[in-house]
Design a protein around this nucleic acid. Sequence first.
DNA 1: ATTAATGTTCAGAA
DNA 2: TTTCTGAACATTAA
Length: 279
Amino acid sequence: MPELPEVETMRRGVEPAVGARIERFERLPCPRKPIAITPTLPAFRRRVEGRRIAAAERIGKRVVLRLDGADAIVFEPRMTGLLLLDEPPDRLYCRVRLALSGRGRLQQILYWDRRGLGNVHFVAAAEFNQRYGADVLGPDALTMTASLLCERLGASRRAIKVALLDQKAVAGIGNLYAAEILHVAGVHPERECTKLTTAQWRAIADATAEVLAEAIRYEGSTLGDGTYRNALNKQGAYQNAHRVYDKTGQPCPRCGRAIERIVQAQRATFFCPGCQRRR
DNA sequence: ATTAATGTTCAGAA
DNA sequence: TTTCTGAACATTAA
């Protein structure tokens, strides 16, 4: 599930582990199909065990544990992955465990993943750029500016909602926050990028900064299935502040008209026909 | 039994 | 070249 605010919350949650030494990298027994890790377990352990965690970073929707020497462990939670420090939601879907030393009571980082679509990679410093550099991921959504947005998407004929999900254009925005951002910006999700005005690009950039910062402050959105948790297994609270996401038929908090649901690129889009007019 | 879900990626067709 | 569609990945819950 996680989009930028949830992944940023995971990153912050795991930050106390900076300075710890990785004693063991373990794949936990799980009665489901194992998640993808690369390289293979023995090679992973060789590369990682005994090394110190130098920093906890985020790149788009991934958490990066940077090791001394700039090699990295990259967690990509996709739909249901979580990073936890102690109590997991359940034992069943714990996939990977890093046993730690040197940080007192903090003795582990767990990677938990119900659907198991996520993955964990060891990435050597030399290959990091090739896998996560500017050719693969656009500028981070948190530092996105109006001119940069317009520069990267202004010539696209795609609908703005679809374009905002393109990680090569902007990194970090997903289906939920794209809807919330466009509502705050007052832009119709089907509007073609080429037809957006400078003022609208600015509104989208401003709304992006506002919505994401607010969502991070609330520690992300825990939707109806209750899957998403922070590193201490506590729910986020931003779902209580959603304006349009999953609110079909409910009144828009700004103008009172009923929120509508449409489908774009095979994914649900929610918007208010009152304050997100087609032009 | 069917469907949809906060994500990514690939193949193939417009 | 760009964009779109469908399917796949694995699992649960309505």
